[in-house]
């Protein structure tokens, strides 16, 4: 899987001296779904806006499929579709007219058959002659996606695509994103819904205070940073933890009837030894279960970590 977007040492300082990005470097693989997570004001939208040509960078370099976004901006931009966070639409235009406008703007000749298929896929065909102002918020969001896909881009940026949309539409969008990925489209999405990233992304990048804290495969991230918890329900309450078990830093809960052991991927093999030690000290177990940290917990831990 080659690189489709190469970002090197990207920085952005706005006119009010706010440093939105501080030397971000990131390689985005062709055909992957990359989720960018980060709190409000972290720099996610600035990053996307620079790649798409809406905001000028202060420093650094970006190549889209080998094309420099400044020098070869035509080639670079023609490969990108953007669904912005805000519902910015031409209220008085019809759905068909606005989507046809987007296709033309990106230098593509008219293709009514393709636009018809696109609108049908997004359940907008019946609304093709409706004015955008007459559509619901969810429908407007679909129109934004149709506009972004009207020129058949190889890369799709989705900036908070499901913010404020109902569960049904969110599920539809997830299905559409998967379908696009299957067709080879590279998707970069920013989201506040960790569930969304967990559900769809191949890789996760976390941005905080204008810096890319990490970027890794979702599964690897969960394994590396995810904490697991083993809860051991005892037959009898345990007055005190025997000294040989102290290295495990067990916590006692529920009137000393439960022992809790926190571990990560590297410590997984220690469980067997822990259970042996407990048996040696005649600690009988009634029940046990494990729980894994969610991506949300990992994310919160990452952005809270003092830097």
């Amino acid at each position: 899987m080659g690189t489709i977007i190469e970002i090197q040492q990207l920085s952005k300082t706005y006119a009010n001296d706010f440093r939105a990005l501080k030397g971000i470097s990131l390689s985005i693989r062709r055909g992957e779904i990359l989720a960018l997570l980060g709190p409000n004001g972290a720099g996610k939208t600035t990053l996307i806006s620079i790649v798409c040509g809406i905001v000028n960078p202060s420093g650094g370099q970006i190549r889209v499929d080998g094309f420099d976004i400044n020098r070869d901006y035509r080639a670079a931009r023609s490969k990108i579709g953007l669904v912005p966070q805000e519902l910015a639409t031409d209220s008085f235009e019809s759905v068909w007219a606005t989507v046809a406008f987007s296709r033309g703007l990106f230098g593509k000749p008219p293709d009514p058959a393709y636009l018809q298929r696109l609108l049908q896929q997004l359940s907008l065909w019946d609304k093709r002659d409706a004015r955008i102002m007459a559509l619901s918020g969810g429908m407007k969001r679909r129109v934004m996606i149709a506009k972004a896909l009207s020129h058949e881009p190889e890369i799709l940026f989705l900036d908070e695509p499901t913010a404020g949309v109902d569960v049904e539409l969110r599920q539809d969008m997830w299905a559409m994103v998967r379908e696009l990925r299957e067709r080879g489209v590279t998707i970069i999405l920013t989201t506040h819904y960790i569930e969304e990233a967990e559900e769809m992304a191949d890789r996760i990048g976390v941005i905080n205070h204008g810096e890319l804290i990490l970027v890794d495969d979702k599964a690897a991230l969960m394994t590396k940073l995810g904490r697991k918890e083993l809860r051991l329900h005892l037959q009898q309450p345990l007055a005190s933890i025997p000294e040989p078990l102290h290295p495990y830093r067990l916590q006692q809960e529920e009137d000393n009837q439960v022992l809790v052991y926190h571990f990560d991927a590297q410590q997984q093999s220690a469980i067997a030894e822990l259970l042996k030690q407990m048996a040696r000290h005649d600690i009988e177990i009634r029940d046990l279960h494990t729980r894994e940290s969610s991506l949300e917990e990992i994310f919160v831990n990452l952005v809270r970590k003092p830097r």
């Binding site: 809406i54 901006y73 953007l82 703007l105």
Partner: peptide
């Protein structure tokens, strides 16, 4: 004003 300028700015137009 409406925010739709994003599309023109991100398009391959000089």
């Amino acid at each position: 004003f409406s925010g739709t300028i994003y599309e023109v700015l991100s398009a391959p137009v000089s």
